[in-house]
Amino acid sequence: MDTTQLLKGVLDVAVLAVVEDEDGYGYDVVRRLRTAGLDDVGDASVYGTLRRLYAGGALTSYVVPSDSGPHRKYYGISPQGRQMLETQRKVWTDFATTMSGLLGRDGAAA
């Protein structure tokens, strides 16, 4: 299965999860996602997702100048974002359990 299709549905919660403990700028978030194993995530998709979450109030944003080169835009999670993350965690856990049960049985039967 193409993971990019799966990613689309969970990118929001994935982004929220990697900025939950520590604020991050755009590429920083991309790197954290890749480090976590989401190799196929696209830079621009992450940036766009950050923008959308920010516009929706789930993230806060501030700009930090760089010693060398252009400034960086940092994102942090907002209380609303934390709430969203908690809800989605439950949804995901339920879903993943269901899918695991479904696929595991199928796999065992095969």
Binding site: Y25, G26, Y47, G48, R51, S66, K73
Partner: peptide
Amino acid sequence: ELVDGLEADL
């Protein structure tokens, strides 16, 4: 909102 900070990321 979309492009701010893009250069640093790039």
